[in-house]
Write a protein that binds this DNA or RNA. Structure first.
Lengths: 324, 324
DNA sequence: TTGTAGGCGTTATCAA
DNA sequence: TTGATAACGCCTACAA
């Protein structure tokens, strides 16, 4: 099968190459009859625009890049994967493709931006896992590279569009669910203060509860969660615990079982583990978040760039199962 | 910052563009002194080869494509994600990038090949989830598109290179572990016959056990696994069950608990769920599998194409936890 | 060992 | 409304 180029199509339709190009890119400028003839030729030949050539002229690649976390395992590792799936779907629908890269740390990631931008003329980036003092956004902004973040710009000036999950609303909903079920002493098991996401999740619990309840702190993980939960359950036992992650929730469940204590537990992220063991958990609308990121990117890329950056805050939902 | 092209570098180094190109692509043909001068100019300017332009000349994009499963959740969904992580790492090391696509069914996937090949000049594909009567491999082979599969070509002629996990060895190791622990009645809980992977996992159990033991069949999932396990445990109770997946294993665990039966359980895939609940499970070396796929691809792409396709069969390992 | 000419497939510009 | 021409950045072939 010979290579089909715009010239092949032009010849078959009896027009110039430019006219074919016009049919593809600015159809309204071509007379209807001609347009139809060219379209027939295109589909008869199975012609497809060559992106590399187009890119060379236009400087746009229709490629967007996302970092994939290094091969790593864990209960919560799947959250970004689910976002990635959604983004690939949404990008495909919009005529874009997703290119993956890995980077160990912010500086390495910035070096990768430089490379990808030069070598592949990437159209845009989607950043995940934003955090306080994140150097990536300012680097990109300084170079006028289009990007959106999944995660708000913690502390940084809000100069770009972002999509985020309303974490506080999630733990607030969990807490309200427990209050409605009659619980009064509701504890919170979360991460050490300082991470934006973790602080927001604690804040939601506190907001819904009113007064403070027992608080436990642990780095993420089943083991450390169990240790912290055990302490909570011994000192000042709550009848329910809202947790900042499913891993911590699993630890809390273990601790309660060991101590023979009845204790309702709610996790966060609605991971496969939660589904598997019947853990009530707060679910993030990751596919929707990805779709919104793509929407914002299209605004940026298709020229209709809004003068003000847009922010989207998506509410999570509570999935009630057996543990609460 | 102006765009840095090969011409910029040439000017700065006081040589022709061609000499710069030679330094990049065939350094040994350039006099050392000149080479050094050009290299200095390259790094001083931060020059990077533009892939689109190179691709236009060479027809090679240094891009490989992999399908990402549609946004879907489940205990086993993470297996392919982990493979993807490994592949992105390995590709990056080899100077390639991974492009993602989604496709609903084999035919849609083949249509996507056609598009990606025409539009992006993809260098190669990595196929996952191979199965009996898989039309994808023959389509690619007929067009001389380089590809490897992660998963052997079930039944199809072995005309391409592949990497696979020795599933039978995994369940055999699990069974031997149980035998060594003194178990004698060891059952198997697997998927309906017909899926290559599932059959191999059953085969490994049978091979290690010698005589047949109790067998249960269920489509993958915690619920259906629990139903099938309940039946096994009531009729003809084994003291241990080897399962074809962590989901089924979880179901088996539930069934045993409900019935108040002591029963060792071993799962397959070593998912986050297994780690979280202490389920002994067979672990696939996914990062290594991805690395091997990349190795095979490089052989194919870098011209040293071996006359015979290469096959790599990787042994899984048993991760012993509390359930067996 | 280095330089020159030409073209990969597309689109922007401008003329017809 | 359509077509001719040039250019994007690079590499291959060939000449010097």
């Amino acid at each position: 099968m010979e290579k089909v180029t715009i010239a092949t199509v032009a010849q078959r339709a009896g027009v110039s190459r430019q006219t074919v190009s016009n049919v593809i890119n600015t159809p309204d400028v071509v007379r209807e009859e001609t347009r139809e003839r060219v379209r027939e030729a295109i589909s008869a030949l199975g012609y497809r625009v060559n992106q590399a050539a187009r890119q060379m002229r236009t400087g746009r690649s229709r490629l967007i890049a996302v970092r994939i976390e290094p091969a790593r395992d864990g209960i919560n590792g799947s959250v970004l994967d689910r976002f990635l799936h959604g983004l690939t779907d949404a990008a495909g629908l919009a005529g874009y493709r997703v290119m993956l890269y890995t980077a160990d740390g912010d500086d390495a990631e910035i070096a990768t931006y430089d490379e990808l931008l030069n070598a592949y003329d990437l159209d845009a980036f989607v950043l995940t896992s934003t955090h306080h003092g994140d150097p990536r956004t300012s680097w990109l902004a300084a170079r006028d590279v289009p990007f959106v973040t999944f995660g708000r710009p913690w502390g940084a000036p809000e100069t770009h569009s972002w999509v985020d999950i309303d974490n506080a609303a999630g733990t607030a909903a969990a807490t309200e669910h427990l209050l409605a079920a009659g619980h009064q002493r509701i504890g919170f098991l979360g991460w050490p203060a300082g991470s934006g996401v973790g602080d927001a999740r604690r804040e939601g619990w506190h907001r819904a509860l009113g007064p403070w309840g027992p608080v436990g702190e642990a780095t993420d993980g089943v083991e450390s969660g169990a240790v912290a939960a055990r302490k909570m359950l011994q000192n000042d036992p709550p009848t329910a615990i809202v947790c900042a992650s499913d891993s911590l929730a699993l630890g809390a469940l273990q601790a309660a079982r060991e101590l023979g204590r009845e204790c309702a537990v709610i996790g966060f992220d609605d991971t496969a583990v939660a589904r598997a063991i019947g853990l009530t958990s707060v679910s993030q609308p990751l596919a929707e978040a990805a779709g919104r990121c793509m929407d914002l990117l299209r605004e940026l890329l298709d020229g209709h760039a809004p003068s003000h950056p847009t922010n989207v805050l998506l509410p999570p939902s509570l999935v009630v199962r057996q543990t609460a």
